[in-house]
Structure formats: structure tokens, C-alpha cells
Design a protein around this nucleic acid. Structure first.
Lengths: 244, 244
DNA sequence: CGAAGTCTTGAACAGAATCAACTACGGTGG
DNA sequence: CCACCGTAGTTGATTCTGTTCAAGACTTCG
């Protein structure tokens, strides 16, 4: 892969940046040791570069160690729907353990560092280690539920509600993984990412964001999101179904 | 459960109506035998009745044997988003193997017959039978991908495209499971189901359907959908990403 | 037959898209 | 160091897709 820059001298897992987070945080120690045994090394991918392209066959799956990425579907005439944003600790491409090709693509949103596994070896490991497989099923169920909720967002919420709900959910996710400083979190998304994630246009996203800023609920710089009034944001979102 | 009418004299799995379909069609014979051993019996649920209500804890999971059901999320102020329609052979509530509560509800669309399992016992069986667990992971991956595609529908397709895409996908699903007679399939959905699945209003669904009928692409009776021109339907849908 | 649910059609309205001009910014190169 | 360029974001005017509100017709079923 042109855009993936493999480094076959794995750094020690002891210093892994996502140890104890997301999926890994839930695994038993002996399972973690097994996982570290089949690790293939790290890989870097530059901002904006493709990580996976719709329909590719590939034997590798990744854990995102650092940076952000996103999964998206490209429709005829160029419309794009962003399906989800991937944060450090998230698995990517794991459905490749079960099927040859995927109908979506993945792109690096920032410079990204990945931990590489063979999908076959990972599948074998899951077969040997039922508790790990269970953990995996759990992660999978959570992802499905996240998609369910986003489906309700796109189908039945207004632009303002969607935006509030989205900002809130990404804020919570980042906080849970320890990326918050006070009430602010890193936020590398551009307008068109928000637009393509929320099913809106970039112009309309500007207006919606402007309204939220005017109300003093959030502020947004080039690199960070600050949530001044979490409760109000939840109210605007007409909150209710959340992933936990 | 008031609305579930349990019958604890299991009928023989040999005559199971969904044997060889959907999930079961992919399982090894010895796994099927194990599954039949932990089967708890059947249950009936009348049209329109709830099968699961958001937030309930329950130890049972089901396989839909006959009839249709749907998963949905109810938002504050009563807006409803239908997440998916469940057809005979589909698992329901399996995420309960991994978490206590689910953020969506399930309702019987027609009279429905269910095959009951204990979620705990099913989880144990998966732990004992890695090939079965793999099969399960595969089904789970497929469901996720179906949601991905629907997300792109709601976010980035027009009403006409969504409708065409939806009709096409349900038509294919039913055909694959042997429910087609010629180019027609059973279709118990009412306007408001279509509306809530597609993120539209019932009035607008009428108009969109009227256009499709006028073009001679489909016809629709109270109980059946006929697809006269599958290619044209795919064109209107701006097809592209499909589940296989 | 009546009643409730379902579907259709029309007219007015609204939320978001589109089109377009303009501003702010960061990097590049002269 | 500044002029320039391309990208990203803002704002306004207009259009369009889909909603809302409302009335009427058609089913189905007790």
C-alpha cells in the first residue's frame, strides 16, 4: 500500500498509547498478552490519505493508536456519507475477518498511527479464546447500537438537533478516553466533515454552528471544541437514546 | 410477558420453517444440533404488539420463525425511526448477550412466531463452539453493513432514491429467502412504516410511490409488492453500495 | 351499516440546498 | 517581508424538496 508506511520493528506493547482504553480496557490480561503476540507492527498514514478503499481485499486489520480517521460511503455523483469517526483505541476493518470486501472506505483525518494484525490470525485467536471473542462481540454490539442511534438522527432529527447530538456524543467519547482538558477536547473536523456526517451541506453547517456559538453553548477553534453548557446541548439535541 | 404467548412443548426442529435460511443456512450440522438442544420453545405475538421495549432487561433472545417485525427508536415528541425490518430467519435481541439493555424497541408487524433461547445459554454455546461464534460474527458484520448503507440512504439520497433503494433491498431479501412468486413478494408494510423507515412523512411517501407506479416500475397491493422493472428501480436508486 | 384506520390529493409553508460573492487564514515563493 | 494563492469559512438571496394542514375517498371489519 502506497500510503501505508510499515515499520516491522514493533514497539513494546507496554508503552502502547491505547492500553487500557476502549476495547483493550475491557480485556483480560492473559488475552492482552496473546493479542500482543500476533501483533505485526505499526504503520503511519498521513492526513487525508486513504487507509482502505471500498471493495479492496486485504488480510490486515488495524487498531488506531493515534490520530483520527473516518469511514465513509461514496455515492454516484460524488455525494459522501461519513458513517463514523474512529478515535484512538478503535478497531478498523474487523469485518474483514468475516467477509472478503467491505462497501465503505476509510481515510485518515489527521496523521494516524496504526497497529497491524492479520485478520486471519486474529480470527484464529478469537476461536481459541472465547472470553476475548465475547469481548469482541460486545464491541461489535456497541458499534451497531451507535449506528442505530445515528440512523434515528439522520431520519428524524432536524439539523440543529443532529448537530447538538453529534457534538455531544463526540465530546463524551473523547472525554471517556481521557482527551478532555477541562470542558474542551481536540477537534480536527472541518465543515465538510460535519456536513457529510450529518447529511447536511457545509453552508448550512456554518449557520447551525453559528447559532450554537451565539447561544454560548459551545465554542470552536481550528483545533478544539469547547462545550460550555452540556445540559443545554443535550436539550437542543432532544437527547434520549444514548449509547449507554 | 403479557404479549408473548409461550408454548413449552417445542415442535421438532426438523420441521423448522427457517431451517436452511439466513443464519441457519450457514451453520454446520453439528452446530445446528447443539442449537436445537438449548431451544426453549416457541412463542406467538400478535400483530402490532410489542416484542421488546427500549431499556427492558431480559434473558431471552429470539429467532423469528414466521411473520415480520421491526426495530425502532422513539424520540421525544413521538417521532419514530424504524431501524430495520426483521424477516423469518432473523435473530432478534442478540446484543442482549453482551449488554443488559438495548436503546430500541421491537414490535410485531404481522402475527409473529418466535423461537426462544436463553441469551446466557446462547452465549455459552458460542464460547464452546468457535465455528458457530464465527458464523455469528459474520451475521453481525452483515447487519452492521446493512446499517451503514441505510445511513448513506438517509443522509445523502433523495426521497425517490431512498424509496427505490429500500424496495429493491427488501425485494431481494425476500427473494433470497424463497418468498417470491414470480416478480412479486409479500408486503405487509403500511405507509407510515415506509415513512418512518425512510425518514419521510406518510403523505410524501404516497407521492413517491405514485410516481413509481405511474412509471410502471412497481405495483403495490395491500399485501404484495410487484417489481416490474428491477433494473429501472436500481437506476432510480442510484444503486452502487449493496450488502453483498 | 357505521367506525376506524388507511390512502390520496391539494394548497401553503418551512427547512435546508443551491448559487454566488466575499472574508479570513496559512503557507509559499519572490 | 510582503504579495500571492488556494483552502476554509461566512453571509445573503433564491430555489426546491419535503412538511404541514386539511379535506375527501376507499378499505376492512365488527
Amino acid at each position: 500500500m502506497a500510503s501505508l508506511n510499515s515499520n516491522h520493528v514493533p514497539e513494546p506493547c507496554a508503552s502502547c498509547p491505547v492500553k487500557g482504553h476502549a476495547f483493550y480496557g475491557l480485556c483480560r490480561d492473559d488475552d492482552l498478552i496473546e493479542i500482543s503476540r500476533i501483533r505485526k507492527g505499526n504503520s503511519l498514514c498521513l492526513k487525508g490519505r486513504p487507509i482502505y478503499r471500498e471493495g479492496d481485499t486485504r488480510d490486515e486489520i488495524y487498531v488506531l493508536l493515534d490520530g483520527w480517521a473516518f469511514r465513509y460511503i461514496l455515492l454516484p455523483n460524488g455525494r459522501r456519507q461519513i458513517l463514523s469517526f474512529l478515535l484512538p483505541g478503535d478497531f478498523m476493518l474487523f469485518p474483514l475477518m468475516f467477509r472478503k470486501r467491505l462497501p465503505y472506505s476509510i481515510q485518515a483525518l489527521t496523521n494516524v498511527s496504526l497497529c497491524i494484525f492479520s485478520s486471519g490470525e486474529m480470527a484464529d485467536l478469537l476461536a481459541k479464546r472465547p472470553p476475548l471473542a465475547h469481548q469482541f462481540g460486545s464491541a461489535c454490539a456497541n458499534e451497531t447500537i451507535g449506528l442505530d442511534i445515528r440512523l434515528a438522527d439522520l431520519g428524524r432529527r432536524t439539523a440543529d438537533e443532529r448537530m447538538a447530538h453529534f457534538l455531544l456524543s463526540i465530546y463524551e467519547r473523547l472525554k471517556k478516553r481521557g482527551y478532555a482538558i477541562g470542558d474542551s477536547v481536540p477537534f480536527p473536523l472541518r465543515l465538510h466533515h460535519l456536513a457529510d456526517a450529518l447529511g447536511l451541506t457545509a453552508t448550512h453547517v456554518t449557520r447551525v454552528l453559528a447559532a450554537l456559538k451565539r447561544q454560548g453553548v459551545i465554542s470552536l477553534s481550528q483545533t478544539r471544541l469547547t462545550v460550555h453548557d452540556e445540559g443545554e446541548l443535550a436539550t437542543i439535541a432532544m437527547a434520549s437514546p444514548s449509547a449507554e
